[in-house]
Structures are given as structure tokens and as C-alpha cells.
Design a protein around this nucleic acid. Structure first.
Lengths: 172, 172
DNA sequence: CTAATATTTTAGCCAAGGTTAACTTATTAG
DNA sequence: CTAATAAGTTAACCTTGGCTAAAATATTAG
């Protein structure tokens, strides 16, 4: 099962009316039914599976674009991780058909890898822009976006995008 | 380093001891300097370390509150995971001083566990409320909140909270 | 009280994502 | 061209967080 096709998240079963659960009033917000609850956690686990892959692929695309080539050593420096780790992960990316390279040479994205990178980049950009539009400082927005981007559904992305656009027109 | 030791903060983002590096401005689509870039990824890795622990502790608190007791079997069902997995994770939670229990008996939170649960719950509630205020559907908001909550800094939380409040007053 | 059932724990397995240290392969300076 | 350095890979190890199957402990029904 491949990463960028799971963005839609899990199935139906809407429940629970508008109990807005203000955290301070702590009104008895009931637990959702077990199976639905489980789906939420499953969605998170699911996202975790692809997170790192997306980050790598996105970073490789950025390096290719801005540096002309994507070298392990740069990836290691930018990810804050050892070269050995990069090497191992790249092996995995290759086995997944996302990256191609010859031994001891720098990296390229396959079609599939580029598709994933494009999507990842887009999501990242939307979230980052949204956070800034909300009023979050640049530094924080960057950090939060990095973490959040893998956990934002299409529905929310659309709303974020609309929000940023409106802010742009009306706000500044 | 044990991330859950410093329970004094809410946003898990900024707990690395040497995180005071000032942000350097750069073009929106340019790559940030390596070391700064690395900090972003480090923040995400850091958040991942505590995510699951927070989820457990939060769930245990919820079960205690709504069900009167927190049993492994319920946790397993709600997390969508085998009981063996729960058992192993609970062992870890106990060794971290977050949970206490006697063998074959149900679970309790230590002070530390309760503090963590409270914080986690608060963050979760803020993010969930914010997403709804933004206009995200209930179902999606729940899923996204579950994934996002661990990656939202205090700064962003504050802004989200303000947004929800304003929406509450003006919007509806 | 005992037997059946339910729950929890343990043991052994796996993959991912980290680490260091040692080795191989490029690249570059003289 | 060769030697030094830089970059990439491999091997051996660790922890987490999953799993299944089997064993131990509660709980409940008869």
C-alpha cells in the first residue's frame, strides 16, 4: 500500500453532535464508540508510516531544485542525523521505488517519488502559509508545519487554503 | 534524555536544551540553513518520542473518568491494538513513573501521569475546538486533532485558543 | 467449589529508525 | 599520479511499537 494514496483517511460513521467540550468547563464529553476511537489512532499510526518517507522525498526534491543535486551528506546535515541512517533509509526508499541512484552517487527521484514529493510539498506549503496567516511567528510556523503536515486531512487543507486566501485579500 | 521529565511545558516542541538558536530569515521557498533545518526535524522526532505515551495516559484518564476504571482490554480495543502490545507499553509507562498498577489489575495514573494527561487533554481540546471553529467537520476534526495535537507549539495553541474564542463571540 | 471463560502477562518474532565504528569508493591537492 | 580527505556503505548494536501464541491469573456460572 502506497503512501500518498491514503490521504482520504478512514471511513464513515459520523456521530457525536456538537458538544464543543470547552476544556475548562469539562462537560462530560463522552468517549466515542470503541471502533471509531480505534480508527482515529489507526489514522495516526498510518500517517507515521509514511511521514519519514515523505520528509526524505520532499527534502531530496528541494535539494535537487536548489542545489542541483541531492547528496547523502546534505540530507544527513539537514535532517540532523548520521550518514549511516540516511544510507539505510535511502535503501528503503529505493526498494519502495521512490528514489533511484547508483552506489556512491547522488540521488534522484523516480516518477513515483516526484509525485509524492510534489504532494508533500504542497501540503507543507499550505500548512505553513496557513499558520502564518493565523499570526504564528515564522520560526514557530516552520517547526509546527513540519510536524503537522502529515496529519492534516484534505478537508482541513482545503479550509486552511481558503482561510489563507481570505486573509490575504482582506487582512494585510 | 527523557522528554516526559519536563512536564512543565505544554508545547512539546521546544524542549531541547539547546534550542535557543535565533531564527534566521530566508526566502519562503529557499532552503533554510542546515542547522536550523535540522532543528525542525529534531523537534518532530522529539515529539514522536512522547506521542504514544501521551496518548496512553490521556486515554487512561478518560477511561478512569468515564468508565470508573482503566482496563487493558478497553485500551486495546480503543487503540485498535493487541492486548499484548498494551501490556508491553504499560510496562514502559510504569517504568517511567506515569502509571501504577498491581499485576492483573487495572491501571491508575501517578501524579506525573495525571499531570501529563491533563496537559495532553487540554492541548487536544484546544486543537479540536479550533478545527471545528475553522469549519472542519466533526469526524475529520477528531481524526486530525488526534494527529496534530502533539505537533502544535504553545505559541500556536495560544493563537488557536484566541481564534476559537473570537469565533464563539462574533461568528455564531 | 470447580470448571469454563475472560483478562493479563510473557516469550519470541519482526521492521523501523536511530547509533558508532570500520570499510570502500570518490574527489581533490600537490 | 598518488596521497590525503570527503563521502557513502556496511556491520553490529539499541529501543520502540507492532504481532501471535502460550501461560498465568481473575472472574463467573453451575
Amino acid at each position: 500500500m502506497l503512501p500518498y494514496e491514503h490521504i482520504g483517511y478512514i471511513g464513515a460513521m459520523t456521530n457525536s453532535p456538537n458538544d464543543v467540550t470547552p476544556y475548562r468547563l469539562c462537560k462530560a464529553d463522552a468517549l466515542p464508540p470503541s471502533d471509531q476511537h480505534a480508527q482515529q489512532y489507526a489514522a495516526v499510526r498510518n500517517a507515521h508510516e509514511t511521514e519519514l518517507l515523505e520528509d526524505y522525498v520532499e527534502l531530496i526534491a528541494d535539494l535537487l531544485k536548489h542545489q542541483g543535486e541531492a547528496r547523502s551528506t546534505d540530507i544527513a546535515a539537514r535532517m540532523g542525523v548520521s550518514q549511516a541512517t540516511v544510507s539505510k533509509t535511502v535503501t528503503r526508499l529505493k526498494s519502495l521505488g521512490l528514489v533511484s541512484s547508483k552506489p556512491y552517487r547522488s540521488l534522484f527521484l523516480t516518477e513515483k517519488g516526484e509525485a509524492m514529493a510534489a504532494m508533500s510539498h504542497q501540503r507543507h506549503a499550505i500548512v505553513l502559509k496557513f499558520l502564518r496567516a493565523l499570526g504564528v511567528s515564522d520560526h514557530t510556523a516552520r517547526i509546527d508545519a513540519e510536524g503537522m503536515e502529515h496529519h492534516v486531512s484534505q478537508e482541513t487543507l482545503d479550509i486552511m487554503q481558503r482561510f489563507s486566501r481570505e486573509q490575504e485579500r482582506g487582512g494585510s
